[in-house]
Design a protein around this nucleic acid. Structure first.
Length: 576
RNA sequence: CGGAGCGUAGCGCAGCCUGGUAGCGCGCUUGGUUUGGGACCAAGAUGUCGGAGGUUCGAAUCCUCUCGCUCCGACCA
């Protein structure tokens, strides 16, 4: 491709509404342009990267035995009503009517459509296992789209669905996908972790997320420093010990704490540490219960653990008026003493004595509070968010390390949730109808590219890993008006094209500075500079974008050297 | 949906408080000089000041409504 003929509109300045680096660089490097909030056009340069991601996904999915298909974006309401998600999915589901006023939605995911296909075509266990996937544009009307391609409303995703006769088969399908995902992200050259995750609204029994490690990631994850355990903090288990409650040594004493609502304020006011406080959170559940949860002052509640414990769909922090009604005090002064509602404690609280709690009245706290003596807790459980330093639940000596991650892939074992709702069954060997056991597996293609940039950039621009780079080599023709320079660069360009090297020739009539700045910005892995100065010695300059190392290479050696570097950068080993 | 902020040329911004008919830098066009890290000189083009309504002799500026965008939170494969 000749730059002069290409469409690569770079920006010198960072657009004001881009916050994270990948969004800024993708705009500046002419990869994407915004059309509306969370909705982007892919310009040619960006599309090349996304297509590469898709191709890697496709190859590894195919290798794992999955079969590509393509489902429609427009989904009729009936399928969604049948699964129950027409109601459940809420406003995130973009709905519209056709000319006959029939209800439709834009597919945010395709369990319904694929299950409909399979139930109508697969009747026998002999046709299993089956894994169908597509790479397609999804639409989710996110409450708050942000960060460019990181959280868009419309985005390109690979979604795969596996169908098996039984649990064992489904587990095998799942593990094949797990391995395929490892292959995919290994091939992309990304630093990532696969972590145990909560299965959330999609449902199902277990799931893993694939997290690209980056400071800007929206998810917090923990991993053990000595074994393989890694999990989203939403999911991360903590070892649950029955702790012996120490004997009380202090009398319960009421203290005035005027205006001291937050833990920080109370700690400061009473000259204590947060570990000597027990905070009382008032929560509401989808089952319409209001209850109190006790946590050590410096801990965070994990609402997913609580929802799972209570077996409810969701748990929310109670509104101020609900808190007032439950405790008789404004928010900030809740405490367990004298509460009429159910009180549940985080496991850690069981091992505490002589602590500070809210007084259930404005501007009042209690010191020297003790469980059993002053109030009763109906149940203890693992309810808090894991943090760095917590002991690993799976091994003896491990401690958690914490990371930020960008969720680029998520795999779920769904079980029979959709097949039962939509009556998708096959006959087993005994001639008995069995609901299909399903799995579903997603990868965000655009988000993966954004995550790669998030992880690989410097102050001058992006540093794309070779497998995702739009072009492999940039040949910079320094002065197109110099016949020798032009001819040498043209010859090299033609040679590389003939060898199927993906090469961009910067033949623009621009000053060198502009060409170098653009080269750094767009981050093509290998840059060959053809200029009069080095050409006198029969040399060109080779610069690696990632390391910044430069070397002089003779015209005769440059092509094989480039080929060598490219094949090294694309080499991958299938995981074990 | 709660909180905050922003909409003025393709991009980045000033002007608004104190109303008087729109400006700066980059980019773009033309000519010339330059050419190994975002050149220089000269001459140009580009705006329904997000939209609607109101106040006023007069509105980018003041008021009301509305739309869009960004950030924080809640939410979320």
């Amino acid at each position: 491709m000749r730059y002069s003929q290409y469409f690569l509109p770079t920006l010198k300045e960072t657009p004001a509404d881009a916050e994270v680096i990948s969004h800024q660089l993708m705009l500046r490097a002419g990869m994407i342009r915004k059309v509306a909030a969370g909705i982007y056009s892919y310009l040619p340069f960006g599309l090349r990267s996304v297509r590469k991601m898709e191709q890697i996904i496709r190859e590894e999915m195919n290798r794992a035995g999955a079969i590509e298909c393509l489902m429609p974006m427009a989904n009729p309401a009936e399928l969604w009503q049948e699964s129950g998600r027409w109601e459940k999915y809420g406003k995130e589901l973009l709905r519209f009517k056709d000319r006959k006023s029939a209800d439709f939605c834009m597919g945010p995911t395709h369990e319904e459509v694929i299950t409909d296909i399979v139930r109508n075509t697969v009747n026998s266990y002999r046709q299993l296992p089956l894994n169908l996937y597509q790479i397609q544009t999804k639409f989710r009307d996110e409450i708050r789209p942000r960060f460019g391609l990181m959280r868009g409303r419309e985005f390109i995703m690979k979604d795969a669905y596996s169908f098996d006769l039984d649990d064992a088969g489904a587990d095998l399908s799942y593990s094949k996908m797990y391995q395929a995902y490892r292959n995919i992200f290994n091939r992309c050259g990304l630093k990532y972790r696969s972590v145990e995750a909560d299965s959330g609204a999609i449902g199902g029994s277990f799931s893993h997320e694939f997290m690209v490690l980056a400071e800007s990631g929206e998810d917090a994850i923990v991993s053990c420093d000595s074994c393989e355990y890694a999990a989203n903090v939403e999911k991360a288990e903590l070892i649950y010990h029955e702790l012996e409650t120490p004997a009380a040594t202090l009398e319960l004493q009421q203290v005035d704490t005027p205006g001291q609502k937050t833990i920080e304020e109370v700690v400061e006011f009473l000259k204590l540490s947060p570990q000597q406080l027990v905070k009382t959170l008032i929560v509401q559940t989808s089952a319409d219960e209001v209850l109190a949860v006790l946590l050590r002052g410096d801990r965070e509640l994990n609402v997913i653990k609580l929802a799972n414990l209570l077996d409810v769909d969701w748990v929310l922090m109670a509104e101020d008026d609900v808190v007032k009604q439950a405790t008789g005090a404004p928010t900030g002064f809740a405490g367990p003493i004298g509460l009429k509602i159910r009180v549940i404690g985080d496991a850690e609280v069981q091992g505490m004595a002589d602590f500070v709690v809210g007084g259930n009245a404005a501007d009042v706290h209690f010191t020297g509070a003790n469980q059993d003596r002053d109030f009763k807790v109906s149940q203890f459980a693992d309810l808090r968010q894991a943090v760095a330093g917590d002991p690993c639940p799976r091994c003896e000596n491990g401690k958690f390390e914490s990371w930020r991650g960008i969720e680029v892939g998520h795999i779920f074992k769904l079980g029979v949730k959709y097949s039962e709702a939509m009556n998708a069954t096959v006959l087993d060997a005994q001639g008995k109808a069995q609901p299909l056991v399903m799995g579903c597996y997603g990868i965000g293609a655009g988000r993966s590219v954004a995550a790669a940039i998030e992880q690989n950039h410097d102050e001058n621009g992006m540093i794309l890993p070779m497998p995702l780079a739009p072009f492999q080599v940039l040949v910079t023709m320094l002065n197109p008006k110099d016949d020798e320079v032009r001819e040498a660069a043209e010859t090299l360009y033609q040679q590389l094209l003939a060898l199927n090297v993906e090469v961009l020739l910067d033949d623009r009539d621009e000053r060198p500075g502009i060409k170098f700045k653009d080269a750094d910005l767009i981050g093509i892995p290998l840059r060959v500079t053809v200029g009069a100065r080095n050409l006198k010695e029969g040399n060109v300059e080779l610069k690696a974008r990632n390391s910044g190392t430069t070397s002089m290479v003779s015209l005769g050696d440059i092509t094989p050297q480039l080929q060598q570097l490219i094949s090294e950068a694309l080499a991958f080993e299938l995981g074990n």
